[in-house]
Write a protein that binds this DNA or RNA. Structure first.
Length: 164
DNA sequence: GCCAACGTTGGC
DNA sequence: GCCAACGTTGGC
């Protein structure tokens, strides 16, 4: 059975892994997510072909940098089993893995980043529940509605000093 | 580097 | 199950 395409936001620190890195490698296992809610979105919510906005966080100009697609079903994050990895989880076993990920495939870099400032200025249109601009939000993976996806992308080709 | 916000852990 | 301590996130 198929279901309609869904849309997601995934954050990454560009110093660690940026849209340019994804462009270079083409496809990447989205490892290192160690938050249960984010894990559940990947494990239970995502399907191959879903749309992904890649958001650059914890950097000089935070914002949406590019688009990707979900390229695999969820499977255990290998780094949880690796004692040498910073993502190692001593409580995870191969029999009962704790952390799951999906592969993410590069689609395109935006012609310009959609900056957090702009996203905030459109908070009304995006809705109060929009996780990215919700107060104190730290989730690194969360759903985006089709309406939010469309509105966000419409900002790509708009003047930054906008007038509504 | 600061610090507010938040999730997780662990003692009880 | 409570909650204080702690670690992390992420904008600034």
């Amino acid at each position: 059975m198929t279901r309609p395409r869904r849309y997601w936001m995934m954050k990454s620190e560009p110093d660690a892994f940026s849209i340019d890195d994804l462009a270079r490698v083409g496809r990447e296992p989205w490892n290192g997510v160690r938050n249960y809610q984010a894990r559940n979105f990947m494990r239970d919510g995502m399907r191959i072909g879903d749309g992904v906005m890649l958001y650059h966080s914890n950097c000089k100009s935070p914002g949406i940098a590019g688009l990707a697609t979900v390229a695999s079903a969820a499977y255990p994050d290998e780094t949880q089993f690796d004692p040498a990895s910073p993502y190692h989880d001593p409580k995870a076993t191969r029999e009962t893995p704790r952390w799951f990920l999906v592969d993410v495939a590069f689609e395109r870099k935006l012609t310009r980043p959609i900056l957090l400032d702009e996203i905030r200025s459109h908070a009304d249109a995006l809705g109060e529940g929009f996780a990215l601009t919700a107060r104190g939000n730290r989730l690194s993976v969360f759903p985006v509605t089709l309406a939010q996806w469309t509105r966000l992308l419409s900002l790509e080709h708009r003047e930054t000093g906008n007038r509504g």
